Simulated assay, not measured.
Amino acid sequence: MIRKSVWLSVAAFLLFSAAKSGNADQVFGYETELDVVYGTGKIAPDGIQTERELRMDVYSPSAANADYTKAASVSDGPHPAVIYVHGGAHHRGGRRIEPFRLEAAVHSRPEDYARLLAPLGYVVFVIEYRLATEYPEPALAPGEGNLIADVDAYITPQVFEATVRARNAMGLPRLENSPEDRLYLWKAGLAGAEDANLALEFVIENAERFNIDPERIAMGGHSAGGGITLNVGIGMDAPLAAIFPLSGPNILFEHEAVMDHPDLPPTLLAYSQFDEHTQLSDLPGVVSLLREAGVEYSLSWIPGFAHFYPHNAVSLGDDGTRMSLGDRIISFLDVHLGSK
């Protein structure tokens, strides 16, 4: 009888805890909807092509603690939206990951950016995309749709070696830098961009469901996610109101073709002082592209950090401002999306 009472007490506690945890996020200014399927993508991990579902987590503003940092209430909507794309050398990462530590830095996770922005009135979509280890099959081939025809122009020796380091950290076999291996990496880069663009299309098509304004959508991400953001916002000329690629590499598209795109989105670039050689060597070309295309852009630096850094790290802007990276992103989004 005592044992039965104990089990009933435990069950009641678990039910109570589950009920509370379901609403716990509202206390912090946001609500979550997890594992939302936004489309499918072709993969061939065993040499046999199949399709897998692509998912996103949705963080929406909650009136329970609305906009606490501004002492004002978040409107009923429609809200501005942000699509956040994780990094990981196109080999690792996801919507929910453990804190990543390297060289005394604790890197902010995708969900950290969502929890930063959602209480301020933004609906944040943290997406996953097909990774290289899944052998994704993108819809386009090199040279199609303004894509760079020469795979080696994108998969440079620096890009290849940076990817090898990531693979080594994951315990994966070393690539041989053969044409087949370089095409394998190129496909992963393009597949990630196609998936992020598909996520954007899904969000626009479901604007009413998520209570967002389809004309006020931004995209951002770090490292590979930054490159994907540049590919979608600049290379694919997607209907984005703003982008914030963090430590992103060059794009997969021919620069001269991209320059003809009208109304490319305002861009906030951020790189760290000791960033990857690949990103830093690509930076002048990215800046030149934005300038010649007439894009409104700003460039900020995170001093003292390598490739990984938290969103509360100090950033130095090209306009002489000094603030945390998170505050800089918020300020940028408020200007171009107008959080309400």
Rank of each mutant, 00 (worst) to 15 (best):
Glu201Ala: 15
His222Thr: 00
Ala196Ser: 15
Asn211Val: 02
Ser108Val: 03
Gln279Ser: 05
Ala63Glu: 15
His79Met: 11
Gly77Ala: 03
Pro110His: 11
Asp150Pro: 00
Asp263Gly: 00
Asn211Pro: 12
Ser223Phe: 01
Gly121Ser: 05
Gly320Leu: 03
Asp327Trp: 01
Gly47Thr: 03
Val36Phe: 03
Phe202Asn: 13
Met1Phe: 05
Gly220Phe: 01
Val58Leu: 10
Val74Ala: 13
Asp213Pro: 07
Gly226Val: 02
Ala139Cys: 02
Ile251Phe: 08
Val295Glu: 12
Asn250Asp: 15
Ser178Phe: 02
Pro303Phe: 01
Leu183Asp: 13
Thr50Gly: 09
Gly294Glu: 14
His336Ala: 00
Glu128Ser: 13
Ile97Pro: 04
Ala104Ile: 00
Thr50Trp: 00
Tyr129Asp: 07
Phe16Lys: 07
Pro138Gly: 10
Tyr84Ile: 06
Ser324Asp: 04
Arg322Asp: 00
Tyr135Val: 05
His255Val: 05
Ala105His: 13
Ala193Tyr: 03
Arg167Cys: 00
Pro266Met: 03
Ala71Tyr: 15
Phe210Met: 11
Ser247Asp: 07
Val37Gly: 08
Leu147Thr: 04
Val295Met: 11
Val335Arg: 15
Asn23Lys: 08
Tyr84Pro: 02
Asp112Ala: 06
Phe210Asn: 10
Leu246Ala: 07
Val286Ser: 06
Thr278Ala: 10
Glu111Ile: 10
Leu190Tyr: 09
His261Pro: 03
Pro136Asn: 11
Ser60Asn: 13
Glu51Asn: 12
His222Phe: 01
Asp327Cys: 02
Val151Lys: 12
Asp57Asn: 15
Glu205Trp: 03
Asp150Trp: 00
Gly121His: 08
Asp318Asn: 15
Leu230Tyr: 08
Leu140Lys: 09
Arg328Leu: 11
Tyr154Gln: 14
Val58His: 13
Glu205Thr: 10
Ser75Trp: 01
Gly94Tyr: 02
Ala257Gly: 11
Ala166Asn: 07
Asp319Met: 02
Ser281Leu: 12
Ile204Asp: 09
Asn197Leu: 07
Tyr297Arg: 09
Ala11Phe: 02
Ile234Ser: 05
Ile155Gln: 11
Tyr122Lys: 12
Ser339Met: 05
